[in-house]
Write a protein that binds this DNA or RNA. Structure first.
Lengths: 119, 119
DNA sequence: GGTATACTAAACCTCATGGTTGTAGATCAG
DNA sequence: CTGATCTACAACCATGAGGTTTAGTATACC
């Protein structure tokens, strides 16, 4: 299973791939907000903004509760942690001092033959 | 500037939002691979797979060098770190024991008035 | 009641994504 | 040279993403 099967990560990363949605998350990190508050700084129409909120809800990054006529949204961060964990897997690849060591280890794993033994 | 302006993060998160591309990254974390090696486990045609590699290159997550007739790809991890850093901003939101404290701090920041002073 | 306010839902548009097939160009091996 | 291998490129298709406008439904306020 070389291809990881994780549709939830698909949704989370896709949700994070738009500046408006990251802006919403940043706002919600300051506490609960209603849809109008979330939409107002977003230089787009209200329906467009609420669509972005929906994308965040599909990714389970935002929870909504209805109070009277307003919909209060709050951040639900655990999926964000999942995304961070996936990314952190490759931390050693971006930590420069291990770069050379990585290459060496790869070379050794290859053994006496070429980079990849056979297939 | 509520909406963060970072087209690079757009590209990175978008690149990570597809299981095939995450699979490619996982493969490349094991060392350099040519396009055929990357494509073979991907249950899709070769052109489709190379398109995914292109997306990763646009996000600066993959570097390619041509050796003879094969194109060797390797992981370029720094953008992955940027993504992790952005996500980690919200770590305190997913760490449960700080949940109550966060709420309290938010309440205090609001001052004597309601959750949000005015607008 | 009447009027704002907060939000939904549907229809529509444009463009990007993700996939296919088919053709063609280098390059390596014999 | 010949044939197999690795890759590129273009054309095409279906679907979804991201945005708009318009109309409609609750809820709050006076």
């Amino acid at each position: 299973m070389v291809v990881d099967q994780s549709p939830r990560l698909d949704l989370v990363f896709h949700a994070l791939a738009h500046p408006a949605r990251r802006g919403i998350i940043r706002q919600l990190s300051g506490g609960e907000r209603n849809l109008s508050e979330l939409a107002s700084p977003l230089r787009m129409t209200f329906p467009a903004a609420t669509k972005h909120v929906r994308v965040l809800e599909r990714a389970n990054l935002v929870r909504r509760r209805v109070v009277g006529r307003q919909h209060l949204c709050r951040l639900h961060a655990p999926p964000l942690r999942d995304a961070a964990l996936w990314t952190e897997q490759f931390r050693r690849h971006w930590e420069a001092r291990f770069g050379a060591l990585d290459a060496l280890l790869e070379e050794m794993k290859g053994g006496a033959t070429a980079r990849r033994p056979r297939r």
